[in-house]
C-alpha cells in the first residue's frame, strides 16, 4: 500500500512542479522603489516605441541586490545608489560597471492636517521637534535604502538625528516610507522627490525639496547582469536616450546633459 501511495505522490509532485504555471514573460528589470512612477512611464514608452515590453519589479535596492546574489533572474538592475551595483560587479555578476542614469533628490513631505510646516532647511521640523510635537516621522531604512542614508545625513546635518531618532518609522523602501508619511500617524517624512511628484501624491500634503548639498549626491547607477538578453540590453540603451531622460527629468531626477 505504501508503495502505491508513494508512486501516486511522485506523479502528483511532478505534475505540480512542471505544471501549468501561468505563462508570462520573464521579468527582466529590477528597479529601486523611488523609480516606481518614472520607470513605469519609461517602460510603457519603450513598449510603444520598440514594440517589446519589459517587466519591471520594484523593491529596496539592498533587497534586490541580495536577491540577485541569490540567483533571482533579473537582467537589468537600476539601483538607488552606486554601491549596490558595484557590489554585484565585484561579485562578477554583471556585464560591466554600468552607468549613472539619474541623480535623485529628497523632499520633506507633510500630509494634510500635519502640524509640520515644510521648508528646505528643516527649520519647521526643528521647531516641532523642540516643542515635542513630533509623534512619528518617516524615512526609508538607512540599512537597505540609499534614500534612507541620505535622509539620515540630512537629519544629522541639521542636528535633529538624536532628538528624532526614537520617533522614526522606517520603511523598507522609500516608497513605503512615503506611504507612512502620508498616513495621519506620521507628521511627515523625508521621501524621494520623484514620489512626491507622482500623480495623486502631491494633493495629499505639502512638500519642500531638500538642497542636494545637504547629503551625498544620490547618484543612481544601473548595470546589466551577466545573462542579460537583447530586450534588456536595448532597454538599457533606451534609458540613456533622450526620450527616457526627458521622462526622468519630468519626475524630478537630475540627468546629465
Amino acid at each position: 500500500m505504501s508503495r502505491r501511495i508513494g508512486s501516486v505522490l511522485l506523479v502528483i509532485v511532478l505534475a505540480a512542479a512542471c505544471g501549468p504555471v501561468p505563462a508570462a514573460a520573464r521579468p527582466s528589470v529590477a528597479a529601486a522603489a523611488n523609480l516606481n512612477f518614472a520607470l513605469t512611464e519609461i517602460a510603457a514608452q519603450f513598449a510603444r516605441d520598440r514594440g517589446t515590453p519589459v517587466e519591471v519589479v520594484f523593491g529596496a535596492s539592498g533587497a534586490l541586490t541580495r536577491q540577485i546574489h541569490d540567483g533571482a533572474p533579473f537582467e537589468l538592475f537600476l539601483a538607488a545608489d552606486e554601491e549596490f551595483p558595484r557590489q554585484l560587479a565585484a561579485a562578477g555578476l554583471t556585464r560591466d560597471d554600468g552607468v549613472v542614469y539619474a541623480t535623485g533628490r529628497l523632499a520633506l513631505f507633510a500630509p494634510k492636517g500635519s502640524p509640520l510646516t515644510v521648508d528646505p532647511q528643516l527649520d519647521g521640523l526643528a521647531r516641532l521637534v523642540s516643542s515635542g510635537g513630533v509623534t512619528r516621522f518617516a524615512i526609508a531604512n538607512p540599512e537597505v535604502a540609499p534614500y534612507g542614508q541620505a535622509a539620515e545625513a540630512v537629519l544629522r546635518k541639521r542636528g535633529l538625528w538624536d532628538a528624532i531618532r526614537s520617533q522614526l518609522v522606517l520603511g523598507d523602501t522609500i516608497a513605503q516610507a512615503a506611504q507612512f508619511a502620508t498616513t495621519g500617524n506620521a507628521v511627515g517624512g523625508l521621501v524621494a522627490y520623484s514620489l512626491v511628484l507622482a500623480p495623486g501624491f502631491a494633493e495629499r500634503g505639502t512638500y519642500a525639496v531638500i538642497p542636494d548639498a545637504d547629503h551625498q549626491p544620490l547618484r543612481q547607477r544601473m548595470v546589466l547582469l551577466k545573462h542579460a538578453g537583447d530586450t534588456a540590453t536595448r532597454f538599457y540603451a533606451y534609458l540613456q536616450g533622450d526620450a527616457a531622460r526627458a521622462i526622468l527629468r519630468k519626475h524630478g531626477y537630475g540627468v546629465a546633459n
Binding site: V21, R26, P27, A33, V57, F58, A72, Q176
Partner: peptide, 17 residues
C-alpha cells in the same frame, strides 16, 4: 516576479507601495 512568484498577497503589498 509577475506570473511566477507574485501572489495576490504580494501584489497587495506591491500596489500599496
Amino acid at each position: 516576479l509577475p506570473g511566477e512568484t507574485r501572489t495576490l498577497s504580494i501584489a497587495i503589498y506591491d500596489r500599496m507601495q
